[in-house]
Amino acid sequence: MPRHELSPFEKNIRRVIAQNLKAASRDITQAELAGKTGIPTSTLSGYFAQRSTPSPANVEKLATALGIHKSAIDPRFDEDLLDNNIHFEAIYAQLSPDRQRAVLTYAQQQLQAQLSGLK
Rank of each mutant, 00 (worst) to 15 (best):
D74A: 12
A31M: 07
E10G: 07
L21M: 12
R15W: 03
Q110T: 13
A65Q: 06
G38T: 02
S42P: 03
T53N: 06
T43H: 06
F88Q: 05
P97E: 12
L118V: 10
R26F: 03
S25A: 14
T41E: 13
S71A: 15
P75T: 08
Q50K: 07
D78C: 03
L95V: 02
N85S: 01
P8N: 12
Y92S: 00
A57M: 14
P40Y: 00
A102Q: 12
D74N: 13
Q19L: 14
K36M: 14
F9I: 06
D27T: 11
Q108C: 11
K61A: 13
E10F: 01
P56F: 05
S55D: 12
L82E: 11
K70Q: 14
A90P: 02
A102R: 09
I73E: 13
T37R: 07
K22F: 07
H87Y: 04
T53G: 01
D83Q: 02
T53D: 05
A49Y: 06
H69E: 14
Q100A: 04
A72M: 15
V16L: 13
N20V: 12
A90V: 01
N85P: 01
D98V: 13
T64E: 13
K36A: 14
K11M: 03
S7N: 05
V59D: 06
A65R: 07
A102I: 07
N12V: 01
I28E: 04
L115K: 04
A23M: 11
A31R: 07
E32C: 08
K11L: 07
Q50A: 07
G46Y: 01
A93M: 00
S42A: 14
L118G: 10
A57H: 15
Q19M: 15
P97I: 11
R101P: 02
H4T: 06
N84Y: 03
I39N: 00
L104M: 14
S45E: 03
L104R: 15
Q19C: 11
E89K: 08
I68H: 05
I73A: 14
P54E: 02
T41L: 08
S45M: 04
K22E: 13
N20W: 08
N58Y: 13
A107L: 12
R76P: 05
A113Q: 09
P8M: 06
S96P: 09
R3P: 01
R15E: 07
F88A: 04
P75F: 10
T41A: 11
E60I: 00
A90T: 04
L44N: 06
K70V: 11
R14N: 06
G46I: 01
A57I: 15
Q109D: 14
S45R: 10
H87P: 01
A23Q: 14
R99Q: 09
S42E: 10
K61S: 15
R26Q: 11
N12R: 04
T64K: 13
F48E: 02
L82W: 03
A93V: 00
L6C: 05
F9C: 05
H87R: 02
F88G: 05
